[in-house]
Amino acid sequence: MNIIVCIKQVPDTSEVRIDPETNTIIREGVPSIINPFDENAIEQAVQLVEEFGGKVTVLSMGPPQAEAALREAMAMGCDEAVLVSDRCFAASDTLATSYVLSAAIRRIGEYDLIFTGKQAFDGDTAQVPPGIAEQLGIPQVTFAIGLEVEGKKARVRRLLEDEFEVVEARMPVLISCVKQMNDPRRPGIKAKLAAKKKEVTVWDSACIEAKACLCGFDGSPTRVVRTFAPTRDIEGEKFEGEPAECAVTLVERLIGEKII
């Protein structure tokens, strides 16, 4: 079984601060980590290969520093790593990112499964996985919490707002993973040291035959007009006293405001 896992390197959200002037994330000095959901994707892939044999290739688009995330993924058990990196990829929106990743996946070649995280911690759009699947013309199953593989069939349990949904798809299929899917392993020291010595393949736009007009700024139809932190115009209100009385006051107020 050949599996590709797409991972994104993101700033460690536990240490992220927002610049109050510009309302953007301060990235300087913030350590980078593997997008947490992508660790679930890695774990799932590694478990499958442990069970059925095969190979896991981990793929990321990003600056040269993203190599660290790829090495961490190899320490967790991925066999090979590919970094697609090129100045012309800068300023890619989700469409352009999906295009570049799908071009890299074509170059990797044979695959049965592609795993991604459910969404990125920073960008947060959850658009890249469906984008990749569309570009490759393969089925996609998002928000996977469980997976069974039978021959060429993947049976996926999806985590929806208030229900589970079980769907079947023919492989190759792209599956995006949620946190509850598994408990990602903590790589041992031996695996970390071995991963440091492994090779990370680096491809630029020419290697993956990516068309310049579909990458980066030119390939990105989305324009960010403005970024801002949401403001709260109405202050919260606290009812104090006996719970039963508070409930009555609350209901009266909600009726008064025509909310219920």
């Binding site: 392993r185 903590r186 041992g188 020291i189 031996k190 040291l193």
Partner: peptide, 20 residues
């Protein structure tokens, strides 16, 4: 068990005997 998985007991031992 977590220390074991992290190879923490392997630090001062020669590689020949499974150490680091």
């Amino acid at each position: 068990e977590m220390c074991r998985e992290m190879d923490i007991f392997a630090i001062p031992v020669e590689e020949k005997w499974g150490g680091l």
